[in-house]
């Protein structure tokens, strides 16, 4: 075979592989949406789950997922921001920084089930929190921290050094330069990073099955007292999320319409994550435009 023919064959193979990958994605999305969307109805989204009967909904699971997401971001964003600022602005080139970077790499490559088990061991067992939203949010924070930290660090580093020099040369402290000049300039990137990490957190289940638990007790959506056991805001109650619910109905197999519920719930999950992805893109662009363009 001469080199020209080899070239053509190779190009053909590459096209074939690309088509296959695109095909896989189209199949995945198509399957979820086509099998799932018909099951999604107002009733499905607004009614409670059933264990042994058909016709259950996902109201509590959906709420739990969102609530956990919000709690997780509230806990992880400040820590990730502080760490990102350290790595991008303060970190000296020494062994401590090297060690920290390694630690973050290790944390990001740990299987989420290990992170979940650690949360289970420390918070559910040792601190006696029991299966609770709080334990789940903390476990998800561990899972979320390395990626969020890195994306914040990268966004901060993308801000040109000239901006820092401008602030410093006006007699501002480094801290004020970072918080007042560098951080706002990095905001579009940081926003995108947060939303993308939100998508990951929203779909995560392995870290949650032994921290937030696998049951969704009936809660009252009119009880706004977070310290009341029946309140939907109570962070100490166990909370099965949407992703965990999909896993559970499929593995326990006691729910008669498990297939319908999982496809409906998967569709909801995917749509929410797609929305997150779109929002990340849109919001990042919007914030960037707002910053640079004339008002």
């Amino acid at each position: 075979m001469n080199s020209k023919a080899a070239n053509n064959v190779a190009t053909g193979v590459i096209y074939l592989l690309v088509t296959a990958v695109v095909g896989i994605l189209i199949f995945l999305l198509g399957y979820i949406l086509i099998t799932g969307v018909p099951h999604v109805s107002i009733h499905f989204i607004t009614s409670a789950a059933e264990s042994f009967r058909a016709g259950g909904g996902i109201r509590d699971q959906l709420f739990n997922s969102l609530y956990l997401l919000v709690l997780t971001l509230i806990i992880s964003f400040p820590i990730a921001l502080g760490s990102g600022i350290y790595l991008s602005e303060y970190a000296p080139h020494n062994w401590f920084t090297g060690l920290i970077r390694t630690a973050i790499e290790v944390l990001s490559s740990l299987p989420s089930v290990v992170v979940g088990l650690f949360g289970y061991l420390l918070f559910v067992i040792k601190f006696n929190l029991g299966f609770s939203i709080l334990a789940g949010a903390i476990a998800l924070t561990f899972f979320n921290l390395p990626l969020l930290t890195r994306s914040i660090e990268e966004s901060l580093e993308d801000v040109p050094n000239l901006q820092r020099e401008a602030g410093l040369s006006l007699g501002l402290s480094r801290w004020k330069t970072i918080t007042g000049i560098v951080f706002p300039a990095a905001l579009p990137g940081i926003l995108t990073g947060i939303i993308l990490s939100a998508g990951r957190v929203f779909g995560e289940a392995a870290a949650l099955i032994y921290t937030a638990g696998q049951s969704a007790p009936t809660v009252s959506y009119t009880n706004w007292n977070p310290f009341s056991a029946a309140s939907f805001l109570n962070p100490m109650r166990p909370a099965e999320t949407l992703a965990v619910h999909i896993w559970k109905v499929n593995t326990e197999g006691v729910t008669p319409d498990a297939l319908q519920i999982s496809s409906g719930a998967s569709a909801v999950l995917i749509v929410v994550i797609l929305l997150f992805n779109l929002a990340a893109r849109f919001l990042g662009n919007w914030a960037f435009k707002k910053m640079t363009a004339a008002k």
Partner: peptide, 26 residues
């Protein structure tokens, strides 16, 4: 400004140490 800088540095060191301790404790 000097105090702000101590404060900022302290906060970022605390956060990063927290992450380090977390990994160690895992």
């Amino acid at each position: 400004a000097t105090h702000q800088d101590y404060f900022g540095k302290a906060i970022s060191y605390i956060c990063i140490t927290l992450v380090g301790c977390l990994v160690l404790s895992i």
